[in-house]
Amino acid sequence: MRHVAIIGAGQAGSNLAAKLRELGFDGRITLIGDESHPPYQRPPLSKAYLTGKLAADRLALRGPSFYAERCIDLRLATKVTRILPADKRIELGPESLAYDGLVLATGAAPIPLPEAIGGSLANVFTLRTIGDVEAITPHIAAGKRALIVGGGYIGLEVAAALNQAAVDVTLVELQERILGRVAAAETAAYFRTLHAERGVKLLEGVGLVALEGQGSVGKAQLSDGSFVDVDFAIVGIGVRPNVALAEAAGLAVENGVSVDAQGRTSEAGIWAAGDCASFLWNGRRIRIESVPHAIDQAETVAANVLGAKRDYRPRPWFWSDQFDVKLQIAGLNGGYDRIVERKGAKPGSCSYWYFAGETLLACDAINDARAYMTAKKLIDAGRSPSPADVADGVLA
């Protein structure tokens, strides 16, 4: 194999290119990104970078000379328009590029608010890229009124960041509670109290009917009949995997680009990794949207592109920073039927442990690094303490 092309210059794509070189691949590597910025971290965008506490140059995943020194052809602000699997070529507008191996690391994109309810008004944003933050930051000032649509982790992180910048924040969540799709009611209750105590207005079970304004948003009509005056709105109602290229090329797609245990798509010579890729996990086809997963899966795929034939074993973990609270999550909580609470050693710290019967699935550790590390080790090893031992603090 002499040329590996990687579509997507985010966390997965950047790590995959670096791993190919680390593993001794001396052929050509082309890393293609549609943004003008070199590969960068996304998690700080909704936290420190949003409020100016982190400089732009600290977002970069690697130094400016990294790619050139390793002969990685980094093509920025470049859009791939078509994949031609039968010819082993990709089209980049008028240019055509042949490959021996191709990796899709196209990530995911925020779900926009429909135009019919005001999604096309000025000052209505999603948050996924540096460009998104650059569009939002001029509106962040003390006394400004922001509406956050969606009570998942992104919505809550943005709400916390804006609140700390003295912005008047209202967050609406259509479901009956925040974090409804991703966390237990106990974890949601902790963060509901945290935000309420800091002055964020959380409206649960309340949907957005429409945004209104003359050109730019000025008011939000809510499903409870109320109206909220707003200066800008940020929509955080989820993401969709970027699969348009894969679909057009005839690749199998199911909740993302479908891959096998080694990261291979349905088309020989094409792999996928990161947020865009779906794989089988305990009988379900899932995607994992996290930095550690993007790194681990990309590095496994890099080895397999070079012939390793190694199955990817996910070790999922996540985190969220809100105000002065760090939430660390180990495992995947799907299918739990019991929550066990454990108090931490420090005031305000605690953890919630997810069980299916007697099997430990996941843990939400709140300002409790010890509980997180213990749960992570247990889950990685396939071991399950009894729920009673967790509650009693016996975690050996």
Rank of each mutant, 00 (worst) to 15 (best):
Q41D: 09
Y40M: 04
V172D: 00
K53G: 08
R315T: 07
D73Y: 00
S96H: 07
A298Q: 11
Y354F: 08
L16E: 11
A391K: 06
P292M: 04
I111K: 01
V301T: 15
N255E: 04
G13N: 09
V228T: 14
A183M: 07
D57A: 15
N282G: 12
E267Y: 00
Q262A: 05
L20A: 09
A60F: 10
F66Q: 08
V103Y: 00
A60G: 14
A294E: 06
D132T: 02
G334P: 11
A68D: 00
R28N: 10
A302D: 12
I136K: 07
A391N: 11
I178E: 05
Q322W: 01
L54A: 02
S65E: 05
K47T: 00
G10A: 01
G335Q: 05
A161E: 08
E134F: 06
G269V: 09
E247A: 11
A248D: 10
H293L: 13
G207M: 11
K346Q: 01
I366V: 15
E197G: 10
V209T: 15
S65W: 03
A185R: 15
N333K: 14
R42L: 11
L222M: 06
K144R: 01
F66R: 13
H37K: 08
G33V: 04
E95Y: 08
L113A: 04
V206M: 03
L251D: 06
E204H: 07
V169W: 03
E69R: 04
I83G: 03
Q164N: 15
L92R: 13
W281L: 14
T126V: 09
I32R: 04
R145T: 00
L97W: 04
Y153D: 05
V253F: 02
A141K: 06
V394A: 13
E204Q: 15
L45G: 01
I154Y: 04
P44T: 13
L208V: 12
S386I: 15
D26P: 12
L194D: 03
G236K: 05
A159Y: 13
L31P: 10
A109Q: 03
A98Y: 10
T193K: 00
T78K: 13
S320C: 09
G93S: 03
T359Q: 06
G238N: 02
I90S: 00
S226W: 14
G215F: 01
P316F: 02
T81R: 07
V158G: 12
L245S: 07
A161K: 03
L208Y: 06
A362M: 09
D324Q: 10
N367T: 12
G24S: 12
V103C: 00
A185C: 08
G152S: 12
D392S: 13
V394L: 11
V305W: 02
P85I: 14
H3D: 07
A261C: 11
V340W: 00
A261F: 04
N15K: 07
